[in-house]
Every structure is written in structure tokens, then in C-alpha cells.
């Protein structure tokens, strides 16, 4: 009898030990990303010593800022088992409207940012309503609205560009200005990341987003309003895209009909690299941040390594596929280990 008890506690301990190991896999994953980034940086630095200079690093992070802002919003959408292909078009639409407002009325930059965000939220709510209320598949709904938004952008612009000379200095300074010596874009990204980290990890609503993605049925039984959560995540991503639109136009000093075409794919790539599960329920702010950093470094480094810019799209596609396949293989081996441990 005694032996039996000992064996049992032994078993429990073994269980918890291996569980800890499993739980740590997500941490390993981020560690792995960091290690990979370090190795990559070392390699690039070895090939081109202008890589790790303060200016280049500053440049690189500034470039990655917009991407990282969008990625954290996309993460929430992916966590709820959704996808949003319309954000490139939202960026263009909000950027175009804001640029035209600036060129005509020279509005205050803060007001412009606010207008951009509102435009984005309106677009996002539209996505959310189609998906949550009418029940259209996320990919279909956002694909359709992507075209509506893109078409609207062309209509509003009449096919013409808004160029830097039409923009006010104060507007252009949104992306070039600095706070305490740090570029505004980086500051904005940091603020957004702090807010999102807090909301996602330390508020009920944040956890409800994950609950809906992890098991929609149980979420309903637990009294979570799924529709509300879905509309919330799509409008949040919409708002971030609207903000990104303003930042984009200010940074590149031009607004065009085809601004940010296909950018949604880059953003999704960042999320996948950062370990966000497309099946929903899992994804971390820190992972997404690392993913954005990694892609930012790659984009910055390819020209430094004399790789033709035409290789970029292909490399990005390959990275996405490799990342999702690796994820799957890791998950499979974990599941298999679980089975082997089961005693028959």
C-alpha cells in the first residue's frame, strides 16, 4: 500500500516536471528567435560593418515601427481564429484622406492622427460586423472590403498622388520629429506596445479575447460575448491601421492609390514568425515584437548584403512557409512525446 502511494506521488511529480518543460516551449521559442536574431546580426555585421551603427539601427527600428504597430493588432485578430486582409487598403484610405485634408486645410498633426484613427476604426467596425453579426468568413469579408477600401482610395484621389510639397511641415514632422532624441514613430510604437501588453495580460477583456480563440463554445458558456470581442479586435486593428496610414504618409511624404498594397501579408508574416497560432488562442506580445524586429532587420540588411530588392518578396514567402511548417512539426513532436509517456 505504501509503495503504491509512493509510486503515485512519483508519477505526479514526473507529470508536473514534463508539464513544466512543455510550458517552457513557448519561452524557448522566444529565446530561439533572440538567438537567431543575434546570429543574423553578427553575420550581417561581418559582411558589412555599416550595419551596427547607431544611425542604421535607428533607421532600422524606425522602419520596423509601423510594421510592429500593425502586427500587435493583427495578433489579436489571429488569436480569435480570424484574419484581416484589408489593412493595407485601410492604410491607403486613411493616408489618402488625411493627406488631402492636410494639403487643403493644414490641420494640426494631432488632429490628423485622430482623424486617421477614426477612419481606420470605421473600416474595422465594418469588417467586424460582417464577420460577427452576419457570419461571413473573415477571409472573404476582409478580402471584399480590401477592394472596397482600395477602390474608394482611388476614387478619392482621382488616381493622383499627394506629394510632399503639398504637405505641411508639421505633418511631415510626425514621422521625422523626436522626443528625447528618439524618433516619434518609435515612441508611438513603444507606447502602443505598453498599452497592449497591459490590456492583453492584465485585464479581463484581454483574456476574453484569448478565451474566444481558444474555445468559442466554452467562451459562450462562460458568459463571454463573442460578437463583442470579434468586433472589438477588428476595430482595434482598423484603428491601428488608420494610425499607420497617417504615419506612413508622413514618413514617405507621399500618398498614393496603391500605398501599402500587399502589406497585410508582411504583417501576417511577422505574427507567424512571432509564434502566433493561426488556429487561434495563442500568441504573445513579446513574440510579435521579436517577429517585427527580425523582419525589420532582414529588410534593412538585404540591400547592405547586396541582395537584389527583387528577392525580398520571395524570401518573405519562403520564411512564412518555413515558419508555419516548423511550428507544425514542433507541435507534432510534442504531441507524440505526450503519447509515448502514456503508459499502457
Amino acid at each position: 500500500m505504501n509503495e503504491h502511494v509512493i509510486q503515485q506521488t512519483d508519477n505526479i511529480e514526473k507529470h508536473t516536471l514534463s508539464n513544466k518543460l512543455l510550458a517552457n516551449i513557448s519561452k524557448f521559442r522566444e529565446l530561439g528567435l533572440i538567438v537567431f536574431i543575434v546570429i543574423l546580426c553578427a553575420f550581417i555585421q561581418w559582411r558589412n560593418s555599416s550595419f551596427l551603427t547607431i544611425e542604421n539601427i535607428n533607421d532600422m527600428i524606425t522602419n520596423a515601427a509601423i510594421l510592429s504597430i500593425l502586427a500587435v493588432g493583427m495578433m489579436l485578430v489571429l488569436v480569435t481564429r480570424g484574419i484581416d486582409l484589408s489593412i493595407g487598403a485601410i492604410i491607403a484610405l486613411s493616408g489618402m484622406i488625411c493627406a488631402q485634408l492636410v494639403s487643403q486645410f493644414s490641420l494640426n498633426p494631432l488632429l490628423i492622427i485622430l482623424i486617421g484613427i477614426v477612419i481606420g476604426i470605421v473600416c474595422g467596425v465594418l469588417n467586424g460586423v460582417l464577420i460577427a453579426k452576419i457570419g461571413i468568413l473573415p477571409i472573404i469579408a476582409t478580402l471584399a472590403l480590401m477592394n472596397v477600401f482600395r477602390g474608394l482610395t482611388y476614387r478619392i484621389s482621382n488616381g493622383e498622388w499627394v506629394s510632399s510639397y503639398q504637405m505641411t511641415d508639421s505633418f511631415l514632422s510626425i514621422a521625422t520629429g523626436k522626443v528625447f532624441g528618439i524618433n516619434n514613430l518609435i515612441v508611438i510604437a513603444i507606447v502602443i506596445y505598453i498599452i497592449f501588453y497591459y490590456v492583453i495580460n492584465h485585464t479581463v477583456i484581454g483574456r476574453q479575447i484569448y478565451a474566444v480563440g481558444s474555445n468559442p463554445e466554452s467562451a459562450k458558456v462562460s458568459g463571454i460575448n463573442e460578437n463583442k470581442i470579434l468586433i472589438l479586435v477588428y476595430s482595434t486593428l482598423g484603428g491601428l491601421s488608420g494610425l499607420a496610414g497617417v504615419l506612413w504618409v508622413s514618413k514617405f511624404a507621399s500618398a498614393q492609390g496603391d500605398t501599402a498594397t500587399g502589406y497585410e501579408l508582411t504583417v501576417i508574416a511577422v505574427c507567424i514568425l512571432g509564434g502566433v497560432s493561426i488556429a487561434g488562442g495563442a500568441g504573445k506580445v513579446s513574440g510579435v515584437l521579436l517577429g517585427a524586429l527580425l523582419l525589420g532587420i532582414l529588410q534593412n540588411a538585404l540591400p547592405l548584403l547586396n541582395v537584389s530588392p527583387f528577392w525580398q518578396t520571395g524570401i518573405q514567402g519562403a520564411i512564412i512557409l518555413i515558419a508555419v511548417i516548423l511550428n507544425t512539426l514542433v507541435k507534432r513532436s510534442v504531441d507524440r512525446n505526450n503519447l509515448v509517456r502514456r503508459k499502457i
Binding site: L265, I268, G314, G317, I320, L321
Partner: peptide, 10 residues
């Protein structure tokens, strides 16, 4: 989605 980017990239 992945192959869409990959094929275009190639």
C-alpha cells in the same frame, strides 16, 4: 497565403 507571396516573389 504563403505560396501566394512565394510564387510572386520567384
Amino acid at each position: 497565403l504563403g505560396t501566394m507571396i512565394l510564387f510572386r516573389g520567384i
